[in-house]
Nucleic acid binder design. Structure first.
Lengths: 247, 247
DNA sequence: CCAAAAGTGTTGAAGTTACACCCATGC
DNA sequence: GCATGGGTGTAACTTCAACACTTTTGG
């Protein structure tokens, strides 16, 4: 491997991003529609691409996400490496790679990242080989390109583990929100019902949220109190290292 | 990337193994002494090496571990990918790579794996470029080759997360053991004291261990009861998905 | 009989679960 | 006035944390 130019592509390593978006109703994933090439119809895929030779993988993930969907400043956490030698071998994937990649037969290992964001704050704009970029309902996902369905599944597992194990990150919350919205968020991710009263009690006791002097307006029911995230208490909780192992 | 021969080396991807070993007293990590080359003294490192072109990464990790230390049949779990472009750039590491690798300047991303085993069941035998293979106390680890110190740290964090989050795997327990030994295991991994009575109570309630009709012999104190692991109950617990998020 | 580690119970505090009705608003 | 989702309290139960002394063995 002679020279390592900054923008020379590393043909063996890619980064893929699983961006979960929540609209306070259902959980979605940001998918791109991979451009069609001759005889290969377009197909849904995770935003992801080869990294550069001199590029940090984390940085690459952010860059690729931006290039394909326009989203930036999203905190990404690693899911892991996916390296089955057959992961690119489905027929349509092969044809697509041949049309698009310089080195279509290379064995590519991908490093997957994930995040959870408030969908309202981000409007994806497709570019590069992405024909479109949309927030798909997690429950509606059918076949995806490559091994991306498997990657989404692994990322969702990480997200669940994270949410039951530590307080949710404020980065995905809008400036103000209601406890019902937060409640729905938790229920969507965990995929089960949580008792409303107990949920509210717990959230308030942890002091991660505090109420604002503001209520919903124009809703055809009792207006709900708005809350904001308390970053200070969140950081304290994280730093002190919560610890579920009780002795 | 023309042909992909089964044993052609992939110069960009390696697998490293962090094998934690417990002797019922202290926590150790399996390290190899990387062979010395001209002007570069030998150095401690994780067992790890480049993968083959057609090889699954998980398989590669097992293979590499076996080649360097003789250990096999160890269940490995992924820690993640480490891909800082500078991770191989320390001077001694560079010199060593130049002496040993076909493609010493390649930018290599490594996928790290970890496991926890009962140290008594495994006697490492160094081979290949490993001059020796030894169980080092985690607390005694000084400088390691490449970014291996960072990898060990990340693996230890995963191990801690795992142990507080789910019942410990029986794969690391000897056939029979005492609750005090198990107690020390937990204390070593978590790095803090756990109340003896509360620990015993909890372990027994979970029914992951059951007592045998056998006691220690020849010890200069009250002999302790031996226990065995209950695999059936363990599997039940895992399958049902323990769940720490209380509502 | 001494040293060493094994083993054992209780209590108060905190957290968890389960459950049903009234409230404020727009239309 | 009705439909909609917001908001609230309590009791039974389980889990957790803290704490000190007796037991059994070898030497």
């Amino acid at each position: 491997m002679q020279s390592k130019n900054k923008h020379e592509v590393n043909p063996r390593i890619s980064a893929d991003c699983v961006i979960f978006g929540f609209d306070f109703n259902q959980l979605r994933v940001l998918l791109i529609e991979r451009s069609a090439v001759e005889n290969v119809p377009s197909m849904m895929a995770l935003p992801g691409d080869l990294i550069y030779e001199e590029e940090n993988i984390d940085t690459a993930a952010s860059r690729v996400l931006k290039e394909l969907t326009g989203l930036e400043e999203i905190y990404l956490e690693q899911v892991g490496a996916f390296g089955d030698p057959d992961r690119l071998n489905k027929k349509n994937d092969q044809l697509w790679l041949k049309a698009v990649r310089q080195d279509p037969d290379a064995r590519v290992i991908t490093i997957a990242y994930y995040s959870l964001v408030n969908l309202d704050n981000y409007s994806p704009q497709a570019s590069s080989f992405a024909k479109s970029a949309t927030w798909m309902l997690v429950d509606d996902i059918q076949e995806l390109a490559f091994d991306h369905a498997e990657i989404v599944k692994a990322a969702l597992k990480k997200l669940k583990d994270k949410i039951i194990t530590q307080p949710i990150g404020f980065n995905l919350l809008p400036e103000k929100f209601t406890l019902s919205q937060l409640h729905r968020l938790y229920e969507s991710i965990l995929g089960r019902d949580l008792d409303k009263r107990n949920f509210r009690r717990k959230m308030l006791k942890l002091k991660l949220v505090e109420s604002l002097d503001e209520k919903q307006e124009g809703v055809p029911h009792k207006p709900s109190q708005y809350f904001k995230f308390n970053e200070e208490n969140y950081n304290k909780l994280i730093e002190n290292g919560y610890d579920n192992f009780g002795f």
